[in-house]
């Protein structure tokens, strides 16, 4: 018993550490009182106020549009990058591409945000595009870092798959484009779904980069939440957080159940 003792204890403490703040937030989202100290009884009042707040609803709609566009473009570009790196062997710009695909993963967000904003401003001065900042500039910025995550996910899937099917198809005379769409794509489809969801989440979650590159009238949901949170306790945000956690837990639960069913079946 002593042998498993230490790591198990640390692991339990670790999981409590991971979940205690989230749990406390969920509980207080049902608090009728505005004050955190006072338990005013169970209430869903803040959920109602959340759904009637026009500023939050508008920002949520903007964020959703950005996230869907980002995820879709990032999956295309990230998959291309991963495919090129895994299946094209050696080419001249390989080291450059590989470096640029991994660097955004660790680059501090303030640097990415500032550098893209300065780029957009300079481009506007020189070629007149993008005219002003808003949805388009946020989407471009999000695609740039999200495609790196997609590339990592797709790369690991490509590394785990056998190339013999692709080679057999080519030996039988199939054109490379056809091989890609008929063989490679179905094989890596789960990674594309995972990459899309990851890019979607990252985009929906981003505060820092969006704050730099957005323009008037295009405040994203995290920007609105941030300004509310900065002013102090906001029970509406508790309610919003609980909804987000519920959706994510449900999504991951379904994904896990699907995976297990596929393994069993």
């Amino acid at each position: 018993m002593r042998r498993i003792g230490f790591t198990t204890v640390i692991a339990v403490i670790g999981f409590v550490f991971l979940y205690a703040p989230i749990l406390s937030l969920v509980i207080y989202s049902f608090n009728a009182s505005r004050l955190v100290t006072v338990w005013g009884g169970f209430s869903t009042r803040w959920y109602g106020e959340l759904l009637r707040d026009p500023q939050i609803l508008r920002a949520a709609w903007i964020s959703l549009q950005i996230a869907v566009a980002t995820a879709t473009i990032a999956v295309v570009l990230g998959t291309l990058a991963a495919f090129v790196l895994m299946r094209f062997g050696r080419f001249r710009s390989r080291a450059l591409l590989s470096g640029m695909v991994t660097a955004p993963l660790v680059m501090p967000e303030v640097i990415t945000g500032l550098s893209l904003l300065l780029l957009f401003v300079s481009m506007e001065q020189i070629i007149g595009w993008p005219a002003g900042r808003g949805l388009t500039t946020v989407i471009i910025a999000h695609v740039t870092f999200a495609m790196a995550y997609v590339a990592v996910v797709v790369q690991s899937r490509l590394a785990g798959t056998d190339t013999s099917l692709e080679e057999a198809a080519m030996d039988l005379g199939a054109r490379p484009v056809r091989v890609f769409f008929d063989i490679t794509l179905p094989v890596i489809a789960p990674a594309l779904v995972a990459g899309w969801l990851l890019a979607f989440t990252l985009s929906l979650d981003d505060l820092v980069i969006a704050s730099f590159v957005t323009g008037p009238g295009a405040s994203t949901l995290p920007m609105v939440i941030f300004s509310k949170v900065r002013l102090g306790v906001s029970p509406e945000v508790n309610a919003l957080a609980t909804i987000v956690i519920a959706i994510v837990a449900l999504g991951i639960g379904i994904a896990g159940w699907q995976m297990r069913r596929r393994k069993d079946g």
Binding site: A11, F15, L18, Y19, A20, P21, I22, S24, L25, Y28, L35, V36, T37, T201, L204, D205, L207, P222, I225, F226, V229, V233, V237, N238, L240, A241, V244, I245, V248, A249, G251, I252, G256
Partner: peptide, 29 residues
């Protein structure tokens, strides 16, 4: 257990920082 590690990562970064704010404030949990 692995999913339990990944799950918070899928929920909002900002909202988790906010959760710590409520957790640590002098009138907090």
């Amino acid at each position: 257990l692995l999913m339990l590690v990944i799950l918070p990562f899928w929920t909002s970064f900002l909202l988790r920082v906010y959760a710590w704010q409520g957790f640590l404030r002098s009138t907090g949990t």
